[in-house]
């Protein structure tokens, strides 16, 4: 059982990374003047949309916590709506936090908001997929010893490392290199860390897998 879970987990992460990479290369076929550095806003949109889509599809296909009891359509609809509201709320919450961290209030508001959206897709969407709109469950997963399954473990690692990546992304801002990307709140570094953590995650999965086989 656990073995298959680990395999699925591995595929899920591989697909996520793949979708990020694709979101860099695919749009250049359709859009003119597309480049990751120049039209960063478009790219961010595309990237977050694709990651969300991949997450949702995977959730529907893999169903890590398939509940046995059948639920009515209305329940599902309300659940979905709740998820959407949670997502929007998290976007706004992240935006507020960025502003509290010192992002300018009015200028660059769009950039800041897009960063918030991206961060939400990397953190809130997997949480919503896995745990549903249940705030207590989230808090449980993100406190020590609160993890119950390997899926939650992976969720904890990915989300925390996304936050860490964003946090670390602020470091180049004070450097006086005078590069324009420094002002974009270092989305790039975040994305880099993003892919790095996916890799780390994958390695960890491998580690777990081999351990499992050893036993």
């Amino acid at each position: 059982m656990k073995d298959t879970d680990i395999k699925r987990l591995l595929y899920v992460h591989l697909l996520c990374i793949f979708s990020i990479i694709l979101s860099i290369f695919i749009p250049s076929f359709f859009l003119e003047n597309f480049s990751v550095l120049e039209t960063h806003l478009t790219w961010l949109c595309i990237c977050s949309v694709s990651v969300t889509a991949v997450n949702l599809v995977l959730y529907l296909v893999v169903k890590p916590n398939a509940s046995s009891k059948r639920s009515s359509l209305s329940y599902k609809v309300t659940r979905f709506l709740k998820c959407c509201i949670y997502f929007l709320m998290s976007c706004f919450a992240f935006h507020v936090i960025f502003v509290l961290y010192g992002a300018p209030l009015i200028e660059l508001a769009l950039e800041t908001f897009l960063l918030a959206v991206t961060l939400s897709t990397f953190t809130t969407v997997p949480c919503l997929c896995l745990l549903g709109p249940n705030f207590k469950a989230w808090l449980r997963v993100f406190s020590r010893n609160g993890v119950t399954s390997i899926w939650e473990n992976s969720l904890q690692i990915t989300t925390v490392s996304s936050f860490l990546g964003t946090w670390l992304g602020a470091f180049p801002i004070p450097l006086d290199w005078g590069r324009p990307w420094q002002n974009k709140y270092s989305v790039w570094l975040m994305v880099l860390t993003e892919s790095a953590r996916e890799t780390i995650n994958q390695m960890k999965d491998h580690g777990v897998t081999s351990e499992w086989r050893f036993f």
Binding site: Y101, G102, K136, L139, P174
Partner: peptide, 30 residues
């Protein structure tokens, strides 16, 4: 970083507040 040391402190204090926030919420709800 010395020139922009204020930013470092603001950043640290903000992070401290968020960490406290996390601790409070965990304590309150769980």
């Amino acid at each position: 970083f010395i020139e922009e040391e204020p930013q470092t402190w603001y950043f640290l204090v903000n992070t401290l507040c968020l960490a406290l926030c996390h601790e409070i919420y965990r304590n309150c709800f769980l």
